[in-house]
Write a protein that binds this DNA or RNA. Structure first.
Lengths: 341, 341
DNA sequence: CGTCACTGTCGAAACGTTTCGACAGTTCGA
DNA sequence: TCGAACTGTCGAAACGTTTCGACAGTGACG
């Protein structure tokens, strides 16, 4: 006839010590005799004891819970989104933190609720737009918070993200170094640009700027999700750039796959006729046909760093700042020097 | 110089009443004079007061948090998975519940942890396999829990899911009623069947059984995710069934899209030469080319019901049982009577 | 006019933990 | 050999809420 879940009194009784001894034994904040510690551990195991979360929160002022604000916008690619959510949860667990998931309207509204009720110790923001109401809210709440992505106004905020500008530079340089002089860029769906998502224009603008700097001719087009939209996008860049020998894809997995299909149908071989680079992709390109050179968008790296930064804010040894993750280039054989006409 | 977050004492002081009066005013569990109530509401607004979550948990034995155990297995389609996660979170919020997300190994390990520490009031299980260690764990923990999906052993469990068997029957009947006598079924990726996910075989077996019952000829094949695998699957069913005039797709979005592409390449028109049905799809088929008749997999419906059932368990007015959601058939013009040879 | 039920409010206990200060008992250097 | 320093343990306070029981005031009824 035992209660549903054991508490610290039960453990103390079974081990024959006081509750403070149990607490110190488990936290290790004071020295405990080895024999006592052993009896306590035994009792804990026997009773399957875990400290009551509510009591711990109340007393300790630490909830060991993080709020993850992750609205899923139309046009956001679900698998990529999922990869970030998963990475955040996994990274948080490494610091013994659980994650409360706030989606859709709760991504904003719920933030205030859980913060003001001291349900969470910190906040992670996903998929911020250039001008996102959540950034203002986070500033107001004054809780440790980390933004994955770069909003327009980063004052007072801790942000981390892949250096999309540098990624664009990397892509352009690679093609230019190989000798390409006319390169295309197929981007995200139009509505992604319209919605104010932060990274697509960052990539595009840096791409165009670097190309201009190096004096190569470029054409850019967004690409809608459906196969018709993809076909249209491919036709558009090839029409704009009849001598195009290099192409960069900054779009989601199915679109990249469809682009390759369309190229195949058009009789364009990769990299024979066209060098193709997959930029800032959160998925593996090695099952594409052909596998594409890729500048990965490392969700786990961004998220791990975001959690580290949040923990650093708990410790108080960090100032708000913006951190960029350096992109890398992975060769998989989809680029080569342009074939002379 | 005001503390970071206001507590009930602050509210009481500002409103000039005792803390118990504040508590009763906010919970409505005892009658309060209109004027007093008004002063309290005013103070709450002014201080942006929210009851401390830890204290509420500790005293009330209700945490207003649900654990969502959602491992993302290889082969699970991320968008579909995401749809379920989102639906659970949204449905839970309607009952003022927040959701703690447990993924990957934490989906099992973390369940025990959060349950034993009384962090959560209940549990929702996603993506259960036929024989899932989490079902045993849930039985052991004795917390209110709802399983989305049907494991082999449902004893003592509350489960809810689309009636995949009935969905299969619906698909077969539709084709047979139109006059088709040779119908194919393209299923999920092979590893989904191997992993022991519960619904794919349920659909497949019911499909084959109903076809046998009605005396029509069938061929089944799984389909790997890549375009080569899809092509192979299409070739396999057409080879097995030279006279095939009906085809049912029980696979994810990109695969269905690729199947339609392959059919187009093979010069097979839908529904002219082949009637095609999209079965148990969590996405909208109306942007496919052509849009497919569909038996939707309504994530929101399953999840809403799952939350309802969990809440019913809190109230104690429900026994463990299995509930099936009745599938519906949506016509979008991708089926017709077979053309006579 | 005395009793009764009802309304509105309050004080205090309880929830389970962490942690501060206290205190025996032991060890050690002077 | 005596106090100082250290070790291991304990009791009690505090965290912020909810809720039980109490009680003063009010109007109704006999």
């Amino acid at each position: 006839m035992e209660s549903l879940v054991a508490n610290i009194h039960d453990v103390a009784r079974v081990a024959g010590v006081s509750i403070s001894t149990v607490s110190y034994a488990l936290s290790g904040k004071r020295s405990i005799a080895a024999s006592t510690k052993q009896r306590i551990d035994q009792a804990v195991l026997e009773l399957d004891y875990r400290a009551n979360a509510g009591a711990r929160m109340l007393k300790g002022a630490r909830t060991q819970i993080l709020a993850l604000s992750a609205p899923l916008h139309a046009g956001t690619h679900a698998p990529a989104h999922m990869a970030f959510v998963l990475s955040v949860v996994t990274a948080a667990r490494a610091y013994d933190y659980d994650v409360l998931l706030l989606t859709q309207d709760e991504a904003t509204m719920g933030l205030r609720r859980v913060a003001r009720s001291s349900l969470v110790d910190g906040i992670v923001l996903l998929d911020v737009s250039t001008s996102d109401p959540r950034t203002e809210l986070v500033r107001e709440l004054g809780l440790p918070a980390t933004v994955i992505g770069i909003p327009n106004d980063t004052a007072g905020l801790t942000c981390v993200d892949l250096d999309f500008e540098e990624a664009a530079v990397l892509a352009v340089r690679r093609l230019v170094d190989l000798g390409h002089r006319e390169i295309g860029l197929i981007g995200q769906a139009p509505l992604v640009y319209e919605r104010g998502s932060n990274f697509p224009p960052r990539f595009r603008d840096a791409f165009l700027a670097e190309a201009a700097r190096l004096g190569v001719t470029v054409a850019f087009t967004p690409a809608a999700e459906e196969s018709a939209g993809v076909r249209a996008a491919v036709d558009l860049v090839t029409a704009a750039l009849p001598g195009m020998t290099g192409l960069v894809l900054h779009c989601n997995e199915p679109v990249q796959s469809m682009v390759l299909d369309v190229l195949g149908q058009r009789g364009i071989s990769v990299p024979g006729d066209l060098s193709v680079i997959s930029a800032c992709s959160s998925f593996s390109t090695d099952h594409l046909n052909p596998p594409l050179d890729v500048i990965p968008l490392p969700a786990d790296q961004s998220c791990t760093r975001a959690i580290e930064l949040t923990m650093a804010q708990f410790a108080g040894d960090t100032e708000p700042h913006v951190e960029y993750i350096t992109p890398t280039y992975v060769e998989l054989g989809s680029t080569s020097a342009p074939t002379p006409l």
